[in-house]
Design a protein around this nucleic acid. Structure first.
Lengths: 345, 345
DNA sequence: TCGTTTTTCTAGATCGATTTAGAAGAACGA
DNA sequence: TCGTTCTTCTAAATCGATCTAGAAAAACGA
């Protein structure tokens, strides 16, 4: 039994396939009675409208924008920051009746063409916290897919919605510096450390550009401080926990721990709690993002308007009226109980 | 300047288009040296692999599964329960190198064929908390898209991963009944009430089947209780807040408030806090789902394994080895500080 | 050496729609 | 009445790949 196509319907009604197509896409190109007759016949035959793939091929519009996450897709949902971004993006996508295609970023088989980024039928792509040199970006570029990133890249013609990472981190650095902190550990995500053991990294080894920039921002305002970089794995609560445990149980405790994301900082707070340490008194903890849980936990952090970031990316991707191609969002230091003066010794 | 296609590459190398196609899809169908030559030439020409839409059309595989949410897409991300489901689903999708297509469920123009569900190029669809009779489901059905729902439907041949809603609610009902509650308000989501004013509903007016089933479960174990149904809008923290405010400020206060989702219950707790009422002492609050925040807030709730639910749906959609078509997940009553004995009067 | 099997590659049809250019007929103005 | 403009509809080309069936060449066994 052959599938019901536009041709089947056309024959059944006694018109040309073009007319059936027009009935769906250009209602003003045919008389109303005929259109209704076609639609009725289509329903009768069980025809659910033009095939998506065929339409996408011929018209060159897929009706979907891709979303690329750094981490494993499943990880992405564990960070409310990423979820907030998605919510903003989804809001705009909805407005333009466009779907969101979440693509897993498996590094496998880039050459062979069997990875999701190459398979994906999309009109444009949102790049969320993906390192500049990632092969998937090259793939999209050669495919000619317009992209908007949440990081400022090197190319001057790149579109992005971002924050001034250095300046944002500098605000936090100034805060910590004034509180007298000279021994700082920065918790960051790093795929290399994805095993079980936390690792200490040099600035050169830090993967993502925005992480690097944040560290530089801290250094800028804390020239006398010793800043160590530690990773407990992917960006997640558990990595922050593991990384902080390692730091807290070592001989060489810092006076402040900075998570490059709130989830990591919250993990660090949990590690402290388990050891009877009080954030803000025994040790200062700070994060980035200001996710909802940060307020509940009393976490000092750098706020960035994440949902707005998602919305802005969506507009750049979908709204032709949006001319601005590079947008800097504001950040703000939010001081809460998790930060306090460095203990004297 | 014409686009680079499989044909361009074929001509440049001096082979047939079929061979180039095989170079990407069936490496064992051609000699290794030729394959490399083709891939090299492709890279040189800036060819990023077979066009997704064309491939999807010809091969009938889109490489993506759709995800359908009840609410507005943007709302969906505000409920950690939905996010947890997505995380589980994404995990399996990643394993099968399949993308996730989040489709906005705008009810507009179902006939005309311009809505996202009809535009979407997908191989299968996950239906998350969508009411049985929703037109989008009919669209997918006629399109012949395999579906797995998170609700048990009426059709016996439907695939689903669900919980026993009645039994789950009954567990909570038993708990409340033993605590002596006879005056209960149930907070549920309802599109009709999406305006500013909360509404009180009858059981017939309740939209989603699973909501109805939960109410029935409560009734079953609380035969003497007066159970009122109130909606403050969509499923969200704010709706729970609004609904509870309305209830608390009325003449006719209940002794217990049950949110049909934790986010709504948490909203209700917030409304109490603002009025100086202590959950578990002045009024009992309970929810459904057991999202992470429920533990922090001390919310009594019915736990369901949400991430596993997502994983199971993913397996049913993507794993051919998965034969089971209907799966009942376990639920558990988790008693925390937000529930206590009904005050005597 | 000759037939048979295997490997490697290709021609041409096909997937299901949209688009372009234009035909046929109706409506219109003078 | 006749040319012009609108409206309504269609034929045929096209989007970019994959698939089927089979040809050509190479390898093999006896």
């Amino acid at each position: 039994m052959p599938r019901v196509t536009i041709k089947t319907v056309a024959q059944a009604v006694g018109v040309s396939p073009s007319t059936v197509s027009n009935a769906y896409n250009k209602p003003d190109q045919l008389s109303a009675p005929l259109r209704e007759k076609i639609l009725a016949k289509a329903a009768e035959l069980g025809y659910a409208g033009p095939d998506a793939s065929a339409r996408a091929l011929r018209s060159g519009k897929a009706g979907a924008v891709g979303v690329l996450f750094t981490d494993k897709l499943a990880y992405a949902f564990s960070d409310p920051y990423a979820v907030g971004f998605l919510a903003g993006l989804a809001e705009v996508a909805e407005e333009f009746t466009t779907s969101l295609l979440l693509m897993p970023l498996s590094s496998s088989d880039i050459q062979g063409g069997t990875n999701a980024v190459q398979q994906a039928a999309i009109d444009a792509a949102a790049i969320f916290c993906v390192a500049g040199g990632h092969p998937a970006l090259d793939t999209l570029r050669t495919r000619g897919v317009p992209m908007v990133s949440t990081d400022r890249g090197d190319h001057p013609d790149l579109s992005w919605v971002a924050i001034d990472e250095v300046e944002a981190a500098a605000k936090l650095g100034r805060h910590l510096s004034r509180l007298g902190h000279r021994e700082v550990v920065v918790l960051l995500d790093n795929a290399e450390a994805a095993g079980s053991n936390p690792v200490e990294l040099t600035l050169d080894e830090v993967g993502y550009t925005d992480c690097e920039l944040r560290v530089r921002g801290l250094q800028k305002e804390m020239p006398d401080a010793r800043i160590r970089l530690v990773s407990g794995g992917h960006n997640a609560f558990s990595s922050g926990l593991i990384g902080a445990e390692w730091v807290l149980d070592s001989q060489d405790r810092p006076t402040a721990i900075v998570g490059l994301s709130d989830v990591q900082a919250l993990g660090a707070m949990e590690a402290m709690r388990a050891r009877g340490l009080v954030p803000g008194r025994d040790l200062t903890v700070a994060g980035f993002d200001d996710i909802p849980q940060a307020e509940t936990a009393g976490l000092t952090t750098i706020r960035q308007p994440i949902k707005d970031k998602g919305r802005a990316v969506g507009r750049m991707l979908l709204d032709p009226a949006q001319k601005e191609r590079q947008l800097l969002m504001p950040t703000e230091l939010v001081v809460r109980s998790s930060s306090g003066p460095a203990p004297r010794h």
